[in-house]
Design a protein around this nucleic acid. Structure first.
Length: 111
DNA sequence: CAATCGGAGCGTCATCGCCT
DNA sequence: AGGCGATGACGCTCCGATTG
């Protein structure tokens, strides 16, 4: 059976999730410059950059959740298949027993 | 007891297929 | 054509088990 210590919610690094430990620059598409000081007056170009960043964050968040859901469904599917295997194996066993019993009966009649 | 291994889960990227 | 959700692939972390 599977190991059952599978909750990875709490990172051992304290309160920072593992996926945020990467170098921050690596997550950004090339050519994107982070806005220097949010909250102050912004040039149109930095507003645009912020919009792009925001869109990216939304996309990443949606995909993160989609991936989680996808894995959940896959696990469920595999569990279903495993159940089906167990049922079919039982059926097979029963049928083999039945066949053996019938053969026995047939043999004794033939004697 | 520290090192190593293997499995599980996660986030992200790339890609595909569907919908508008 | 472009947006979007689903999913495979990859690399990473964490954790329990095993081993020397």
């Amino acid at each position: 059976m599977a190991v059952t210590g599978d909750e990875t919610e709490s990172a051992a690094t304290g309160d920072i999730p593992a996926y945020q430990l990467r170098s921050p620059s690596s997550g950004l598409p090339q050519g994107i410059v982070m806005a220097a000081s949010p909250g102050s007056m912004q040039s149109p170009s930095s507003q645009h950059a912020e919009e792009i960043t925001r869109k990216r964050e939304v996309r990443l968040m949606k995909n993160r959740e989609a991936a989680r859901e996808c894995r959940r469904k896959k696990k469920e599917y595999v569990k279903c298949l495993e159940n089906r295997v167990a049922v079919l194996e039982n059926q097979n066993k029963t049928l083999i027993e039945e066949l053996k019993a019938l053969k026995d009966i047939y043999c004794h009649k033939a004697e």
